[in-house]
């Protein structure tokens, strides 16, 4: 048994290898949180675009262009974006962003590429979650708000979105956890995250099992803590209903 502790000590403590884990975890957390912020903000915008009723050509008279009457450019753009993002693998998106956009065009550190990449990716999923939440609300809520003289924007802001957020909390929590775990592919573009740290320790210590198990344990611990915390928040939100 003493021998095994020595092995563990050598695996993680020698040459301060544990610092790889600590730094990797910080990188993972920072990317996740910042990407989630981008995802939420852009996701809200995209979802509003998909449900908007903006038809600039609805009064067109010519029968030749009659098909344009129902054309909604916002919805179109948002749907194309969501289709492309959801229809391609995250790693591929990240590699495209890294190799085509940031190298040569914009010089940026890996960290920024990762945040932007995962943020743009998450936004598509968040947009669909929010859209479902808004469309799942009783139509009467919007009618009541509008009947009281509120503008569409005010009604969205004060009546619809707060209720939708409450409803979609579980789905958003899920998406956050997926995002957190998905960042483990960031090593593909050279990001030094938790998974990459495990790989490096495995390579330099010649121990295959322990570094990976430790990484898995840390992912599991954090997602469990987060889930537990969000359940509490959900419960609090429910109380005001």
């Amino acid at each position: 048994m003493d021998n095994y502790f020595l092995v563990l000590y050598n695996t993680f403590m020698k040459d301060e290898r544990y610092m790889l884990i600590v730094n990797g975890l910080l990188f993972t957390l920072a990317v996740t949180i910042l990407a989630a912020l981008i995802g939420i903000i852009l996701g809200v915008v995209l979802s509003l675009m998909t449900i908007s009723d903006f038809r600039p050509f609805k009064n067109i008279k010519s029968e030749r262009f009659a098909f344009l009457r129902d054309f909604n450019p916002f919805t179109k753009i948002a749907l194309i974006y969501i289709t492309v993002i959801r229809g391609t693998p995250t790693v591929v998106q990240l590699l495209i962003l890294f190799n085509l956009v940031f190298i040569g065009v914009l010089e940026a550190p890996i960290f920024v590429v990762a945040v932007v990449g995962f943020g743009l990716n998450s936004a598509a999923y968040v947009a669909e979650i929010i859209r479902a939440g808004i469309q799942g609300l009783d139509k009467g809520q919007m009618e009541a708000a509008r009947a009281l003289g509120m503008s569409y924007g005010k009604a969205m802001q004060v009546i619809i979105i707060p209720q939708a957020i409450k409803k979609i909390m579980p789905a958003l929590v899920s998406e956050f956890i997926v995002l957190f775990k998905e960042t483990s592919v960031v090593g593909m573009i050279g990001g030094n995250d938790l998974t990459k740290a495990a790989r490096e320790i495995a390579a330099s210590s010649y121990r295959a099992a322990e570094p990976w198990l430790l990484a898995a344990l840390i992912y599991l611990l954090l997602t469990t803590l987060f889930t537990y915390f969000m359940r509490k928040v959900e419960k609090r939100l429910k109380e005001s209903d």
């Binding site: 009783d138 009618e143 009541a144 009947a147 707060p162 209720q163 005001s240 209903d241």
Partner: peptide, 9 residues
């Protein structure tokens, strides 16, 4: 309205 449509939140 028939179904009141009060704001539940």
């Amino acid at each position: 309205f028939q179904h009141f449509n009060l704001f539940p939140h």
